[in-house]
């Protein structure tokens, strides 16, 4: 019986350790949430308290109604969606071709693409800036859409190719024997099969575009053109420095969409990422 008791204690200890760990992990987020909801806002006087005794949504109202938050959000949505469409439009057919066809130079192209992907885009930021300027796209959404698609294209291509590889070829062969055309093949068989993975890839691209700020700081000027990420960045760099409750409210509002999306696709994502890892 002594053994059982020891096991019980071990369990309780472990449970306790994990609760502490969760609290430590969530501390910055809980603290921000509590500051944003605190009605008395006496950060300096009342000292340390994780849970405010009086709650208010005032900070959130201020953000949503007085600041151009909603305009930024609209900009972010438009920009991110355009990036997702362009990325999928260029990468999905290419990933399909790399998965289903064999052609000369395929292996070399693939390792070259991987190598290119190892370079952080930010290193060629200056060159991109000059090119965008020559193209006359400064301060236009199109510039950011092109750049974001460029940063995500190889990664998306790579994951999509992995998904296509995992779909067996049999059905396509059968359809081909039945005389299906290429277009029918794609629209009737391949896309329905690949749709869940296309969605996951799309979500990753969306989150990436949604969260990007450094390119936006270089290419976008004028508050009404800001994305949410750039807006938040600019706020903390200027008047929000002294207004930490407002900033935390804005942070939490900005994070909500990504949090929701992340937890919606998390299961698929972990499975997909580990599958890629196992294959090497």
């Amino acid at each position: 019986m002594k053994f059982g008791k020891r096991k019980l204690w071990k369990g309780i200890l472990l449970e306790f350790a994990f609760i502490i760990l969760c609290l430590l992990t969530l501390l910055p987020i809980i603290y921000a949430l509590s500051v944003s909801l605190n009605a008395s806002n006496s950060l300096f006087t009342s000292g340390l308290r994780l849970f405010p005794d009086k709650l208010t949504l005032e900070n959130y109202y201020t953000i949503l109604l007085e600041k151009p938050f909603l305009i930024w959000m609209r900009n972010s949505i438009v920009l991110s969606l355009l990036t997702v469409f362009l990325t999928l439009f260029v990468t999905v057919p290419a990933a399909y071709a790399f998965s289903r066809f064999r052609f000369r130079g395929q292996k070399a192209t693939m390792s070259f693409l991987l190598l290119l992907n190892a370079f952080p885009t930010i290193l060629s930021l200056f060159a991109i800036y000059r090119i965008i300027k020559i193209l006359g796209l400064l301060n236009k959404k199109a510039a950011l859409v092109l750049i974001y698609t460029g940063t995500m294209a190889i990664f998306t291509f790579w994951t999509m190719k992995g998904y296509f590889d995992s779909i067996p070829n049999d059905m396509e062969e059968a359809a081909k024997i039945d005389g299906a055309t290429n277009l029918q093949l794609i629209s009737k068989i391949i896309l329905p099969l690949a749709l869940p993975s296309v969605l996951v890839a799309g979500v990753l691209v969306f989150i990436n575009a949604w969260n990007e700020y450094i390119f936006a700081t270089i290419f976008i000027t004028g508050t009404e053109k800001y994305t949410l990420a750039l807006g938040l960045y600019s706020l903390q760099a200027t008047d929000y420095t002294r207004n930490w409750p407002l900033f935390s409210a804005a942070s939490i509002l900005t994070s909500l969409p990504t949090l929701i999306v992340f937890f919606l696709v998390q299961r698929h994502m972990v499975a997909g990422l580990t599958a890629g890892g196992v294959k090497g």
Partner: peptide, 15 residues
């Protein structure tokens, strides 16, 4: 799950 730039700024300001 949180946007990295948001949490980095939260750490900077909050912590």
């Amino acid at each position: 799950a949180m946007p990295a730039y948001v949490t980095i700024l939260l750490w900077r300001m909050g912590m």
